[in-house]
Simulated scan of single mutants.
Amino acid sequence: MPIEILQTGKLLASCEAALAERYTVHKLHEAADKDALIASVAPNIRGVAGGSMQADLMDKLPKLEIIANFGVGYDSIDTAAAKARNIRVTNTPNVLNDAVAELTIGLMIALARRIPQGDQFVRQGKWPGAQFGLFTELTGKTVGILGLGRIGKEIAVRAQAMKMRVVYYGRKRQVREPFIYYSDLTEMARDSDWLVIIAPGGAGTDGIVSRQVLEALGPRGMLVNVARGTLIDEPAMVEMLASGALGGAALDVFEKEPQVPAGLLGLDNVVLSPHQGSATNQTRDAMGALVVANLDAHFAGEPLISAVV
């Protein structure tokens, strides 16, 4: 009999097709009565494809062996609970590095040159009757990267191609990296023109970009978040963007997404994106393939490709 797995959210069509070829898939996100579905299939579920797994759901799946998360971030999974229950957890790193790094640089250019606003200026017939204005550029600026991991390094390389100076903050200095390391995030923000956030979400980073950090970045500073909305003191950020205490922000993520703070919607010094960091066909296909590959490896008794727990 095929191994039975639980799918917790919608996945790319290519991923869902590959899962269906190999496993009996129960789609929790499509169930009209989720509790009833879980009660009916729980004794047979050995794997999960997707995220959003907390301890209470794990406890309902007594034979659960592995959670194959779709995404590099796994803060929607209680990894401590999984480890305590001897449940393996995997994610999908590396395959989305380039896509997220490209979007980051795109957001930076869009904010610096006000590209979305310029598009609207033309569409609304304001040009050539009026001049759009002068803004700024990336060349010669210092970008501070919060989280110099796999994606952070790709952003750094691209920022250097834009003739920017790169510095970074993290839990520890990476001795093989050529960039200047800061052990204090506020100090780095004070010395940076741009602050790019690409650190993992979770309790350890909640609110790490505090009002103090935003004040250090200041009225000429630009903020970019392609990580998790929870890393920023969002109310403070909105207030400071509106008052001019913070120069600008390009945001791909929000604290309570898909809800976006209403205070951001009318600001000209903001570029907003609907969590599109990895949203390319090739990247999402690769992410889905890695979800399937981790499940296949586990049930074949082989080493996991990208284990978290």
Rank of each mutant, 00 (worst) to 15 (best):
E4W: 03
L6E: 07
L6G: 10
Q7R: 14
L11W: 07
C15R: 01
E16K: 05
A17N: 10
L19T: 05
A20M: 04
A20T: 12
E21L: 11
V25D: 06
K27E: 15
K27F: 10
E30F: 02
D35C: 00
D35M: 03
S40M: 02
V41I: 15
L57I: 15
D59Q: 14
K63Q: 15
I67R: 10
G71C: 06
G73V: 04
Y74C: 06
T79E: 12
R85G: 06
V89K: 11
T92M: 11
T92Q: 12
N97A: 15
V100F: 12
A101V: 05
L103G: 14
G106N: 13
G106P: 12
I109E: 04
R114H: 15
I115T: 14
Q117Y: 02
Q117G: 06
F132Q: 11
T136M: 14
E137A: 10
T142S: 05
I145E: 05
G152Q: 03
A156S: 10
M162Q: 15
M164F: 10
R165G: 00
Y169Q: 04
F179S: 12
I180Q: 15
Y182R: 05
L195N: 09
L195F: 10
M222A: 12
V224G: 01
A227P: 02
G229E: 05
I232K: 06
D233M: 01
M237V: 02
A249C: 04
E255S: 08
Q259F: 08
D268M: 07
N269R: 09
N269Q: 10
L272A: 08
S273H: 02
P274A: 11
H275T: 02
G277W: 06
A279Q: 13
T280I: 01
G288M: 12
A293F: 08
D296Y: 00
G301T: 10
E302I: 00
P303Y: 08
